[in-house]
Design a protein around this nucleic acid. Sequence first.
DNA 1: GATGAATGAGCCTTCATTCAT
DNA 2: GATGAATGAAGGCTCATTCAT
Lengths: 199, 199, 199, 199
Amino acid sequence: MAREKNKHDLILSSASKVFAQKGFHDANIIEIAKDASIGKGTIYEYFDSKMTLYIEVIKFNMEKYLMRIRNQVMSKTTFDEKLEAYINCHTEIISEHYQYAGLVMNGSVEPMFNSKNTQETLLILLETRDKVVQIILDILVIGSIEGKFKNSHLEYYADLFFEMLNRSALRALMLHHTQDKQTLEKTLLIQMLINGIGH
Amino acid sequence: MAREKNKHDLILSSASKVFAQKGFHDANIIEIAKDASIGKGTIYEYFDSKMTLYIEVIKFNMEKYLMRIRNQVMSKTTFDEKLEAYINCHTEIISEHYQYAGLVMNGSVEPMFNSKNTQETLLILLETRDKVVQIILDILVIGSIEGKFKNSHLEYYADLFFEMLNRSALRALMLHHTQDKQTLEKTLLIQMLINGIGH
Amino acid sequence: MAREKNKHDLILSSASKVFAQKGFHDANIIEIAKDASIGKGTIYEYFDSKMTLYIEVIKFNMEKYLMRIRNQVMSKTTFDEKLEAYINCHTEIISEHYQYAGLVMNGSVEPMFNSKNTQETLLILLETRDKVVQIILDILVIGSIEGKFKNSHLEYYADLFFEMLNRSALRALMLHHTQDKQTLEKTLLIQMLINGIGH
Amino acid sequence: MAREKNKHDLILSSASKVFAQKGFHDANIIEIAKDASIGKGTIYEYFDSKMTLYIEVIKFNMEKYLMRIRNQVMSKTTFDEKLEAYINCHTEIISEHYQYAGLVMNGSVEPMFNSKNTQETLLILLETRDKVVQIILDILVIGSIEGKFKNSHLEYYADLFFEMLNRSALRALMLHHTQDKQTLEKTLLIQMLINGIGH
DNA sequence: GATGAATGAGCCTTCATTCAT
DNA sequence: GATGAATGAAGGCTCATTCAT
């Protein structure tokens, strides 16, 4: 788990792993410390509290998630390529860290409902969500320019696409779909999004 | 809170309320007992543990949720009516108990990831989900019979409809959409599902 | 340690003992619980926190201390008898619980200097001190009536008597004076207070 | 804070300040280090432990306290002058470092009652006390030579004078007496000590 | 010698669960 | 059956102390 990072990121990485496996409450500081092969106290040298650490973990993962999506999508040029890049990238991320990627969609965080800390975390999630939706909107605009579909309510559709693509990926993971089934679903999904189920 | 229920259901009802407000970990047995105006110990006469109670609460709510959806949808006959009935009913339920209704979609439960208890709970959620998807499939079949769209991959589309309709409702709630915006989105959503964004 | 008290007073009694031996910081809840032969958690059924318990212990002891002094002094009638009763009673109390009796004089409490809690505790100590000084003043007034000395600045002398009598008792204890030496000192002290060292 | 001291005394000085403000337990090594503008580890180059440092601080202050008293008293010649010098000097010291000066009288140290360390500290306090009492005894002997009062039990009275003069000063500080009230009390106290309250 | 990052023992407090009444 | 007093395991966090640099 270690490699050559600084302690701060090492802790973040272990915390990310443990929080993902156990959730905020069932994760405990000792386990995170053990995973990072450091002492309990060291965590408190870098983070004020368990809650703070949790928030930082979320920020950390959202950052990584956004970066990866952006890089993949930007490396393509056409609507079809970009959309596929997005879907593939997202599916990958979800299968690696599905807890955190899922957070963007669920828009909910486990600990301390309605507390200030939760509000801060929610804000991060919503901001990340907005940024991803913007990426999809950019893709849709390209599709529109390519004449794939007409250009109305694209903001709304970007939102919906986001939900559906994510849901589809997450569900595939949870229901342990085969590779074939996933590919079929992906095709059907895109076809339906563009043409509706009427065609 | 009580009226004339038996203690078992009274506890279930209070627990449902408190778990929804606080989540599994932040909810206390004592608070549930107070809400039900009974003694702490009494809860253990009816439920083995906090975890068991939580699972029962989920079962209880899934049952209620399914029942309500079924009743509403069955009371209508055409595709349009049934779909609208489904959407309205679901939106209502979500705004009343969005924590629990949300569970069906998130397919995740807070406490003790990967434990036996969680597996049991997940099973309940997946079963409920399957039953709701079946209801939607029934609606789609009627739409297909009505000639609204062709009859292929309907099982898959039912699944997708479910995700999208739920997501849409949940998001409307979370983002505090106005009534007007909700109505517009609902219309756009159905239009897109049937016709795609190309039209 | 137990006898037949209610739990509240049992805890207070054990806490009094342990706090006296170790001071606030070095005393720990577990030891107090063990001394009272109860579980750690039980203490928190009766007291909100370690700090609260500490304050209650002080109140408890001040109460007992005042009561005892009052009873002893009231049971006598002449100046000489009352003064001796006061001295004897105080000496006894100090040798039994010298930490707490000492507090009245030191006017200082160990934990959290300048915090709200400390302020509250200080107030209790000062109030107790005022009440004891009043008892001594009453004794002095009787002495004055008896013609033992003239009646001026008695309030001030009551204050000084208090300090000196207490100090004398406390020092005797700390320096492990013999009974004889204590008796001699007591006599000398009273003599000096009344006649000064000039006679 | 530093000026030109060696590190050892610099630490002692900062520790003295912080211990006085917070008490032994609530004072942190890190705070002492910050006050001295040095690293935490450096303290352990000069002192074995927090406890050792605390003891050294007490020794340090007792030394300073004795020195000052001695210098002031020696600079005078008559009983009246010496006594006043003592009182004034002590009052000054107490208002500057009342925590430490108070220790001599209280004869108690906060941390670890009954431990070996505390015993060592107590010894220092008692030795200091003895030395101060000796100073007062010297003053009384001069008074006796001057014919102010007869020469019996002076050792005992020296002890009592010490207690009373100190108490008076400490109480004046704690109860925030005005300058006038302090002067009055000082006069009354000396008068009573010499003549008793009967005159 | 000076430093401060790292450590882990220790402590307060919570809360699910038990059980005598 | 109903209760709530009693319990103690568990966990977050602090801080004196160490030691590699």
